[in-house]
Amino acid sequence: MSAMSDRDNNVRVLSAPPSARDSMLGGLQSLRRRASVPLVLPDTVLQLDRQRLEPRRIAAYAKLCGFSPDQGVPATFPHMLGFPLHMALLLEPAFPYPLIGLVHLANTIRQHEALRAGETLDVAVRFGEPLHHDKGQAFTVLTEMRRGGDTVWESGSTYLRLGVRQAEGQPVPPPPVGPQPLAVAGRWRQPRSIGPRYAAVSGDRNPIHTSRLGARLLGFRSPIAHGMWMLAKSAAALLPETPVRTAEIEVAFRAPAFLPGSALLLATQRQTGTLFELRNGRAEQLHLRGLLRAEAA
């Protein structure tokens, strides 16, 4: 996730984020795509400058994810600014897979400097290397947020296209190692409404999260919670009560969480950080497993 300047010739600077309508239409059109073998990921870099960490949007996001106002700009919030560019990148003509049906496998977030509500950041996204997965082809979308010339926040979102044989690349990294966490760090209801509400805040309007019919059509018995919402909700419970300067959050997603449902957050302190798992209310199903480190501002 180093500097993107060496690939300047492929940088396309957008003037505005793609609208939700464009993303949705593009998403539908992308259903006509067929998987190509071998996979060639476009080396396009999409850039959107001066994106504002909007206080009102932060407040709405924080409320939905369980962050308190005292925690400042949630370390997971910049994903909101990066996500429309993810969509645009996945809609690039050279990207071979349909958007619908991509499985969010893992997400890493690295915040290097404290974020201030109201400031503007330059956002850029591009593809990482392809990754090999037992069930198909995985790849990572890298996001970088810069203040002036400095990278203050970056993330990697790993997605999986199921059913691709002879997947390319290195194996997908395993989830964080360590024992089963046992301390109960949180317990909450995951109401049916959380899908549409998070969709409205994040712009991730994938019908598997928002609509019963949509979920059914795509093979789920009921809508499932957004992985990034569960990640944020877990991080809210585990991050310090005060704003952080740096944060590292690494999460592997596992079984989907059907809505409505309940969730149990388990954690354990290791030398490497806080190892955590979000499980269903009966603790039998693992929704995500992660590792979190943070340094107060």
Binding site: L182, V184, S262, L264, L266, E284
Partner: peptide, 17 residues
Amino acid sequence: RTGLSMGEHCELMARRW
């Protein structure tokens, strides 16, 4: 305090160890 049955707790312990 956790809503988990004893068996569910013990499953977590079994995984831990």
